[in-house]
Amino acid sequence: MKPILDVQKVKKYFPVERGAIFRKVAGQIKAVDNISFSIVPGETLALVGESGCGKSTVGRLILNLLPVTGGTIFFSGIPLEEMDRSQRKIYRSAVQAVFQDPMSSLSPRMRIREIIAEGLVINQSLSRNEIDSKIQQVLDQVGLPQDAIKHYPHEFSGGQRQRIAIARALIVDPKLIILDEAVSALDVSIQAQIVNLLRDLQREFHLSYLFIAHSLGTVRYISDRIGVMYLGSLVEIGPAEEIFTNLHHPYTRALIDAAMPSHPDFVREDVVLAGEVPSALNVPEGCRFNTRCPFAKDVCRQVEPEMFEIGPGHFTACHMLDGAPEAGFFLN
């Protein structure tokens, strides 16, 4: 299937400025460093990784909220920067977003009607009646009462607000929705409601999701493929079950082992990853995981491993894995 979104070697560096009067660039935060992946229609790709590894930045780049430092993002085969006005307009409806904080993602002084309709009002010239009937429709789809439109965001609970945010994204018939920690801030019982809603909507409208999250339980439940990020770069990407059952990269292992068990019988005491994530200002030489990796050898400290295919559609970047292009010796 042809990908709907194709991210090719994308970089985003943030300059760090020092000095009070004469600003000079003192360094660069490599928030996103050479990332490539694609998403096909109807698929959920999850991005996981620890705080600050660049997940949200990837989302913001795709949403065109930030310019890329290098690389290209293709939507339906067209590079973002080469889009003309009409293509841009289509793109703005086709790609929507739902963010983490249900408090901050709805304008506090707008009524729900206005919030949900904003994308329509800006991009399409519809009559009031057409807009109203579309609003009715999406409210039904996300499970909100019809009279919600008259109220303000603060009158709703966190879960309901997230439904409003979803309705707002849904109303413009998107193809791809960036879900940046869309359920992380919600209560456990509400999280399941929203995740189920997202799954149902996906089936009904054949949506693609970029699901950014740090909760691996949710990720396993909802995603078709998973990309694991570490310090701005993808270290492993592949089919979800493959990642969970047949994982390869040492960081992926550590991350999955660190997830909390769902039952006391599943508690393991052994595995602990030492140390902390280095600063994105100062990415280690060679493999960026080598400072914490229990398997690191000299080559890891010198040569940056390249992505290679370790199983069907399953890519990873680690020197110590069988089949790795550079070093290619067995991982014990």
Partner: peptide
């Protein structure tokens, strides 16, 4: 417990608690 999204096993469906907090 039913609405817990388990990391050990992929669930086909997760029951959620209905209603609001």
């Amino acid at each position: 417990l039913n609405s817990m999204q388990k990391v050990e096993k992929k669930a086909d469906h997760i029951e959620s608690i209905k209603g609001q907090p």
